[in-house]
Amino acid sequence: MRLEQFEQSVWPHLSLDRRGPRPTLALHKIFNYILQALYMGCQWKMLPIDRNAEGHPEIHYTRIYRTFRRWQADGCIDAIFFSGSVQQLHQDQLLDLSVIHGDGTTTAAKKGGDNLGYSGHKHLKGDKVVALCDRNCNVIAPFISAPGNRNESPLLRDALPSLTAMARAIGAGLHGSIVSLDGVYDCRANRKAIFNRGMTPNIPENPRGRKTPKRGRKQRYDPAIFEERFRTIERVFAWEDKFRRLLLRFERISDVHYAFKTLAYTMINLRHYC
């Protein structure tokens, strides 16, 4: 990340050490080392750290890890995502909230850890997240995480309050917006939760193994809007795969993995300024 972009979007939301000597390395350089770990997917001790004049590494990898954990515990990563990317995109009129696309994705965990479950559909043990994005492939709300054996449909009702809180904080209106989801989220509770927030669901009816069509009035559904999902939320998940740290979950602590995922979504949102 360039220094100008770092000072604008990242530096105002970082916390500093309260004790001990001041770091000799700039926070911009430390943040770029964290991004290298996110993009390369290597171990912390394998980071390509530059050498100083004496031929020694300019910083020890454990200090980079401790700095990242402190920023994650202090809420700096979440603040960078919200204030540094989402709010900035809204101020620059780069958000298109007329249609909101949502979907879930599952990550396999090879080394175990917390917040995990075996997904019989994916045939793997891991965790899943439900993310929401706008029509311009910008992740607009903090994602909802759960073990891999959880059904995605109830998770949407946990994601909607975060969506409305985000819109209220940045001053954006969601009244009349269309929420496009796949058939997994087709249930009365999800449709009611979307309607109660002034939005319109665009969800194809899930037959659930019925041999005959369901009786009653057909739900509103626009196939053209549904087809946008493959150019928006599926593209976001494809961009997420370029961050090799997120292809497989090797962090046993889920908060560390989710901090990396939040940072990846921030980088996807900041692509407009690169």
Rank of each mutant, 00 (worst) to 15 (best):
A146Y: 05
F195L: 13
C137D: 11
I77Y: 04
L163I: 03
L181A: 13
I170H: 03
H175F: 13
A108L: 12
G75D: 10
D182A: 07
G148S: 01
C137T: 12
G120N: 11
A108T: 13
G120C: 07
T105I: 14
G112K: 04
F82A: 13
L156Q: 03
G148V: 03
L181W: 02
K125N: 14
A73M: 08
A172Q: 01
I194D: 06
Q87D: 12
T106N: 12
P142L: 07
N149M: 05
L160Y: 01
R69K: 13
S83A: 11
D103N: 09
A79P: 00
S98G: 11
D78S: 12
C76T: 07
Y61N: 05
D103C: 09
Q72W: 01
R135K: 14
I77L: 12
R66D: 15
N196R: 10
K110I: 15
N138S: 13
I80E: 00
A109D: 00
R135N: 12
G173D: 14
Y118P: 09
V179N: 02
C187V: 01
V179H: 00
L95N: 06
I140M: 06
P147T: 09
F143A: 13
G112A: 11
V130K: 08
L155F: 01
H101I: 10
V179F: 07
I140D: 04
N115L: 11
L95P: 05
W71F: 04
D78R: 13
I140R: 00
V130D: 03
K192C: 10
D78Y: 01
G183L: 13
G75F: 07
F82D: 09
S83C: 14
S153T: 03
L160C: 07
R168W: 04
L174P: 03
R66A: 13
F143M: 13
C76W: 03
V179T: 01
D92S: 06
D134P: 09
Q91A: 14
F82Q: 14
D74F: 04
A159D: 02
I144T: 11
I100S: 01
L97R: 05
I194K: 04
A159I: 08
Y65A: 13
G148M: 02
I80F: 08
A159C: 04
G176W: 09
D127P: 01
T62K: 13
K111S: 12
Q87S: 12
I178T: 14
R69I: 10
D182W: 08
V129I: 14
G117I: 11
A193G: 09
T105A: 08
D186G: 04
Q88A: 14
V130S: 09
I194R: 06
Q88R: 15
V86I: 14
G148R: 04
R191G: 08
D74M: 12
G148Q: 05
G198H: 03
R188V: 14
G113K: 12
F68C: 05
K128A: 00
V130R: 03
F82G: 06
A79R: 15
I140H: 08
